[in-house]
Amino acid sequence: PDLGLTQLFADPNLIENLKKNPKTSEMMKDPQLVAKLIGYKQNPQAIGQDLFTDPRLMTIMATLMGVDL
């Protein structure tokens, strides 16, 4: 199971919303991170391994779920 990750990354406004959010806007200036996020739309399971190697993803996930870290 993808634990709902498919829906989190399926939002067509995902990148724009993250660019507008004060907690994630600075991160979204990294083209490699943006490319990763776009890739998760097609393969949400890929985030599982990346969560352990890129701490920014935890902040992004929390933001998408509405959790304040």
Rank of each mutant, 00 (worst) to 15 (best):
P44M: 08
D50W: 02
N13Y: 11
M65W: 08
L8P: 03
L3M: 14
A10S: 14
K29H: 08
K29F: 04
P31E: 10
T6Y: 10
T59A: 10
Q32P: 03
L64F: 05
Q45V: 09
K36W: 07
L64V: 07
K23A: 13
L5M: 12
D68R: 02
F9T: 02
D50V: 04
M28P: 00
A10M: 14
T53W: 09
S25M: 12
T24Y: 03
T6W: 11
L5H: 07
L8Q: 04
N17W: 14
Q32C: 09
M58V: 13
T6D: 11
L57W: 09
P1M: 09
Q7S: 11
K41P: 04
E16C: 08
A35P: 00
D11S: 05
Q7N: 11
L37Y: 00
V67T: 12
I38F: 06
D11G: 04
Q32M: 14
P12C: 04
D54G: 01
L51S: 07
E16G: 06
K41E: 05
N21M: 04
P1A: 11
K29Q: 10
K29M: 08
L33G: 00
N17I: 14
K19V: 08
D68E: 04
A46L: 14
T63L: 15
S25Y: 08
A62K: 12
P22I: 06
P31S: 08
N17G: 07
K23L: 13
D30E: 03
Q42T: 15
I47D: 04
N43M: 04
E16P: 05
T53S: 14
I47L: 15
L64K: 01
D11I: 04
K41G: 12
A62C: 10
Q45N: 13
Q32N: 11
T24L: 10
Q45R: 07
Q42R: 08
K29V: 04
L51H: 04
E26L: 08
K23W: 10
L5S: 06
K36I: 12
V34Y: 04
L18Y: 00
K36H: 04
D50I: 04
L5C: 10
P22G: 04
N17C: 07
M58E: 06
L8Y: 11
D68G: 03
K29E: 09
R56K: 05
A46F: 10
P44G: 06
V67I: 15
L18W: 01
F52L: 14
S25G: 06
M28C: 03
Q49A: 13
L51Q: 07
T53I: 09
T24M: 03
L57I: 11
Q32R: 10
L37I: 12
P1D: 10
L14K: 01
L8S: 04
K36P: 00
M65S: 09
Q49W: 10
I15D: 00
R56H: 04
F52N: 08
D11C: 06
L3N: 12
E26Q: 09
A62T: 12
A10D: 11
G48Y: 15
L33I: 06
A62S: 10
P55Y: 09
L57P: 00
F9K: 01
V67E: 13
D2G: 14
F9G: 02
M58F: 14
G39E: 14
N43V: 03
A46T: 13
L64Y: 05
R56Y: 04
M65P: 03
N13G: 08
I47M: 09
I15G: 01
K19D: 02
V34K: 02
L37R: 00
T63D: 03
A35C: 06
G4M: 15
N43S: 06
A46D: 12
K20G: 10
Y40F: 11
P22D: 05
P22T: 04
Y40H: 02
L14Y: 07
Q7A: 14
L51C: 08
Q42K: 13
F52S: 09
L33W: 04
L57A: 02
D68I: 02
D11A: 04
I38D: 07
N17Y: 15
P31C: 05
L69H: 14
P44F: 06
I47R: 03
V67P: 11
T24C: 04
D11Q: 08
A46V: 09
L3E: 14
L8W: 08
L51V: 12
M65L: 15
P31T: 10
P44S: 05
I60Q: 00
D50G: 06
K41C: 08
V67S: 13
A10V: 07
L5Q: 05
Q42G: 10
Q45C: 10
D50L: 05
L3P: 11
G48D: 10
P55H: 12
Q49T: 13
D54P: 00
L33K: 00
Q45T: 12
K19N: 06
M28D: 00
I47E: 03
F9V: 03
L14G: 02
Q7G: 11
I38W: 05
M27D: 02
T63S: 07
Q49F: 13
R56N: 04
M61A: 12
T63R: 03
L64W: 03
Q32Y: 14
D50S: 05
V34R: 04
S25E: 09
Y40T: 01
P44T: 06
T59I: 13
P22K: 07
I15H: 02
M65G: 07
M27C: 03
A46I: 08
G66N: 11
D50T: 05
D2E: 13
K20D: 07
Q45G: 14
A62I: 11
G39Q: 13
F9E: 01
L8E: 02
T59K: 09
D54C: 03
I15R: 01
K19Q: 13
P22A: 08
I60Y: 01
F9M: 07
Q7M: 13
D54I: 01
K20Q: 12
D54M: 01
L14Q: 03
K29D: 09
T6N: 12
Q42V: 11
K41F: 11
G39W: 15
T24R: 00
K36A: 07
N13H: 12
G4A: 14
L5N: 06
V34D: 00
P1H: 10
Q32K: 12
Q49S: 10
G48R: 15
M27A: 05
P22Q: 05
D2V: 15
T24E: 00
M27V: 05
N13P: 02
P1V: 15
I38C: 07
P55E: 08
L57E: 01
G4Q: 15
R56M: 06
L8C: 07
Y40A: 04
M28T: 02
L18N: 00
T6I: 14
D50K: 03
F52G: 09
M28A: 02
L57G: 01
K36G: 02
N17Q: 09
K41T: 14
K23G: 06
G4D: 15
D11L: 03
P31L: 08
G66L: 09
P1L: 12
T63N: 05
K36L: 12
T63C: 07
L37A: 00
A62Y: 13
P1R: 02
N17D: 09
K29N: 11
T24H: 03
F9R: 01
D54F: 02
T63A: 15
G66R: 05
L57F: 08
P12M: 06
A62Q: 12
I60R: 00
T53P: 03
L18I: 03
P12F: 04
P44H: 07
Q49Y: 12
S25I: 06
G39M: 14
L5R: 05
M27F: 14
L18T: 00
Y40E: 01
M27H: 04
L14P: 01
M65T: 10
P44A: 07
E26M: 09
